[in-house]
Simulated assay, not measured.
Amino acid sequence: MFENKNYETELNDFIENWKTDELNAKPAFARLKDKLLKKKNTLLSFHSRAGITYSLRATIKKSSAKDNPLFAMVDIIDDDPANRWLSVCFFGDMITDPDEIGDFVPEGLLGQDAHCFDYDNQDEELLLYIEQRIDEAHAYMCDEQNN
């Protein structure tokens, strides 16, 4: 569910107005959004910075996590609106990257180390891999909350 109705409305308006999609990022974004919406105890927020990024952030509801309840961030990179692409990031200690596909980004997510995965083509295997990382990060946060 969305943290508040405004986030949901703003995201739906953005998606509806996203007409040009040469890299086919829109269907991948919709798929990741739907996956996050199905996650138990998850709240989504949407942060728009036109010309830079459109950010879908997933947090654990009523988290007692020590640091940040955020477990996934799906950014639509908007440096060229005709060629938007996705950057999906997780805190470095929340996931594994067994195939070493992601980029390690020191202090890259809210000032903390991150693993980010760039999606800029129609790659079903990569999308499945990212979905597995979402599952992993969500499980990590749910375990943190229960400890």
Rank of each mutant, 00 (worst) to 15 (best):
Q122D: 12
R133Q: 09
K26F: 06
D21H: 03
G102T: 07
R31I: 06
F14I: 11
K35P: 08
N83L: 01
N41K: 15
L86N: 01
K26W: 12
N4F: 04
S55F: 09
P69V: 05
K19C: 02
H115M: 14
F117R: 00
L37E: 12
N12F: 05
F104I: 15
H138N: 07
D79T: 09
K40L: 05
D143R: 14
Y140R: 11
K66N: 09
A137I: 03
L43S: 06
S48Y: 14
K35F: 13
F104Y: 09
L56K: 00
S55W: 11
Y140F: 15
K38T: 09
G111Q: 07
N147V: 12
A25N: 03
T42N: 06
I130Q: 01
D99Q: 13
K66M: 11
P98R: 01
A82W: 03
F104R: 06
P106G: 06
L70D: 09
I95Q: 03
P98H: 01
F117I: 00
F104V: 15
D78L: 02
K26Y: 14
L128C: 08
L109Y: 11
F2M: 07
I52W: 08
M73H: 14
M1K: 13
Q112G: 02
N6P: 01
L43A: 07
C142W: 10
R49M: 12
E8Y: 08
A28F: 07
E22W: 08
